[in-house]
Design a protein around this nucleic acid. Structure first.
Length: 422
RNA sequence: GGAGACGUCGCAUAGUCUGGUCGAGUGCACCACCCUGCUAAGGUGGAGUCCCGGGUUCCGGGACCGAGGGUUCAAAUCCCUCCGUCUCCGCCA
């Protein structure tokens, strides 16, 4: 949720932001009107309620024989109070709906426009030069028996798969490498719930812009999470946390579930775009003034992981229209995929400023004994199953084997390559 | 899945039967001050979160006793639904 006081004082900032996102600019004025209506209704109710309370006290103190007369006098008031309260509630709800129509205020430097309007911040590493015809990750996976797509489809349908043998081990190795890096950087590891309640899912902002991406369990009115960000953001919901000793950094390990609605026909081969995968996610609660610097740190940790697995990649500054509703700025890293001759997203790090925290009720005290204020939240990817695609394709060798980057070897019993024979 | 108990201001609890003086008591912990004088005891006071209005080291009002409804002039207290915790039984990959 946005800062309502800021909305009142500088509505133009929000109009600009909505415009940059190619979003609904009129939502700003609807929210302002709803805010005024809400406050008027609330004042009306509270005035009546104060009157009623004062009267209740009079009745309590009156001698027995006068009570009946007093009660008769005030009978109508109860009705008025109830009606005013209902009106105040309705107005508050209407305001809530209106204000939800406004996404997080984008930061300076975020490119305007849609999905294709990102800017490239840098390209790192050399594209591999093969003196043979490189195989795509599916061919490599089949010949090296790293995953089983057919049986995945048989058991669970399209976009499901089994990781098998070295494929399974490679994923665990990657995630463990990421986990160890995170722990080394001071993150607290958490293995998170992957089913969450509606208020948590709503609080993270996913029900606004990604609702058709989310698996919903109707019998239980709960959601499967598409990233541990959801459970990590909910971890401190409705809490006043202590940031005096620095930011709270969590590394969440979880399976992620995505419906991939609307992506029919896209990336149908292999494990690039799947309904279920594993991910190690960084999540940080920090003070708002530290958010931009922390965002750079998260990006640096992501790039550190990419360097460890020796992948060529680029970093992009995502355009406003491609940000989630909670994000104020987002950097993606995209690895080079040789057989596609293009870059594909491997990590994504968002600065949600105070937007998520406001919805989820996560606050801190800037000063000892002072007033509470919302924290800033940030998230970023450290490793996912998808990374296997980039690792396999970039590190394949003429004999059909895949060289294992040195950083991963300790997690794979020291092997230097996965060969057809191994 | 069945039966029962419970959910109160940081923690522990009182209050619920018998609705109003609960503006929620007490203990511990916390903060300030006083007294005392030395790794302590005692006294006084203070303290939560959120919202609205006016003022900007404040004042007034309102909400919050797990959540949401209901009864009533009035609900922590009575009724209903839901959620959670615990105990016992059943079941279990």
């Amino acid at each position: 949720m946005i800062d309502v006081e800021l909305l009142r004082s500088t509505p133009d900032a929000f109009r600009d932001s909505q415009r940059a996102r190619q979003g609904d600019v009129s939502a700003v004025d609807r929210a302002l009107e709803a805010d005024e209506a809400r406050r008027a209704a609330l004042t009306r109710f509270e005035t009546l309620r104060a009157e009623q309370k004062a009267f209740g006290k009079k009745v309590a103190q009156a001698p027995k024989d006068e009570k009946a007369a007093l009660v008769a006098q005030v009978q109508g008031l109860a009705e008025d109070v109830k009606r005013a309260e209902a009106q105040a509630n309705d107005a508050a709800q209407a305001f809530d709906v209106a204000v939800r129509g406004i996404q997080n205020l984008v930061l300076d430097g975020v490119p305007e426009g849609g999905e294709d309007d990102f800017t490239v911040l840098r390209e790192v590493g050399e594209h591999p030069a093969f003196d043979f015809a490189p195989k795509d990750h599916v061919a490599l996976g089949e010949s090296l028996q790293l995953f089983d797509l057919e049986r995945g489809a048989k058991v669970s349908g399209a976009r499901f798969y089994y990781l098998t043998g070295w494929g399974a081990r490679l994923e665990l190795a990657l995630l463990n490498l990421a986990l160890d890096q995170a722990i080394g950087a001071g993150f607290t590891p958490l293995i998170t719930p992957t089913i969450v309640n509606p208020d948590i899912m709503r609080g993270t902002g996913f029900l606004d812009s990604h609702s058709d991406e989310i698996y919903y369990l109707e019998a239980d009115d709960q959601y499967l999470t598409g990233t541990s960000e959801v459970a990590l953001a909910g971890y401190h919901s409705d809490e006043i946390i202590d940031l005096a000793a620095g930011p709270k950094r969590y590394a969440g390990w979880s399976t992620c579930y995505r419906r991939e609605a609307g992506s029919h026909g896209k990336d149908t081969r292999g494990i690039l775009r799947v309904h279920q995968f594993n991910k190690l996610e960084m999540f940080v609660y920090t003070t708002p003034d530290q958010a931009v610097a922390e965002h750079q740190r998260l990006l640096a940790w992501e790039e550190q992981m990419l360097a460890k697995v020796e992948l060529p990649y680029r970093v992009i500054n995502t355009a406003a229209g491609d940000l989630g509703s909670s994000a104020a700025q987002k950097f993606d890293t995209e690895a080079w995929i040789p057989t596609q001759q293009t870059y594909r997203e491997l990590t994504s790090t968002s600065n949600c400023t105070t937007y998520q925290a406001r919805r989820l009720g996560v606050r801190y005290r800037p000063e000892e004994g002072g007033k509470t204020t919302p924290v800033a939240t940030l998230n970023g990817t450290l490793a996912t199953t998808r990374w296997l695609v980039a690792i396999l394709e970039n590190h394949q060798q003429a004999d059909g084997s895949v060289r294992i980057p040195e950083a991963l070897r300790p997690y794979l019993g020291g092997i230097e390559a996965i060969t057809p024979a191994s």
